[in-house]
Amino acid sequence: MAKVFLNGQPVEHPHEVHEHISPMSTYNAVIGALFVLTGLTFAVSFADLGPASLTVAMVVAFIKASLVVAYFMHLKYDDKYHLFVFLGTIIFVGIFFGFTMFDLKSRDALNDEQETFVRWKEQQNAGKGLVVGVDNVPERRAKVLADIEAHGGGHGGGDHGGEHKADAKAEHKAAAH
C-alpha cells in the first residue's frame, strides 16, 4: 500500500487512530485548580506586595496557562510537533519582548553617549507626556528646535522652553535637571 506521512514522518500503522481521551476526573481537577489559582491572584491583589506583585501575578498566570494548554488543549498527549509550534511561538515572543525592553531601558545611557536625547523624561516631569524627540542629525535637530520655538516652547521644554540653543548637548543637560 501507499506510504502515509504525518508531519514528514512515515507512519507505520496509519489506520489506527490514537486519540487520547482524558477521563472526567482530569477535567474536573484542572478546572478546580484554575478556580483556586484565580481566587489566589484575586486575593493577592488586595495585599500590598509592591514590585513583587507583578511577578506573583505572572507566575500564577503562567501556571494557569500551562494547565489550559496541557489538558484542555491536549498538548500533553498530542503530537509533539504541535508543542514545538506553540513553544517556538513563545520563544519568538520572548525575543520580541526581550530586545525591545532592553533597547528602551538602555536608551538613556546611549543618548548620553551619543549626544542624542528623547524628551520623554522632561515631558513627564512637566506632566505633558511624550511630544517630541530631538536627535543628532543637524538638519532634523534644527527643524525640530525651530518647531518648538514656533510654538513658543510650550510643547518642548517646560521651564526650559525659552532657552533653546543649537547645541543639543546643552539642551540635554538642561533636560537632565
Binding site: V4, L6, V11, P14, V17, Y81, H82, F86
Partner: peptide
Amino acid sequence: FDTMGQQTASAKLGMWLFLA
C-alpha cells in the same frame, strides 16, 4: 488525504499555526 488520521493531523497542525 490517504487516511482520516492524516486529515485530522493536517487540520490540527494548520490550527496550531493559526494560533501561533
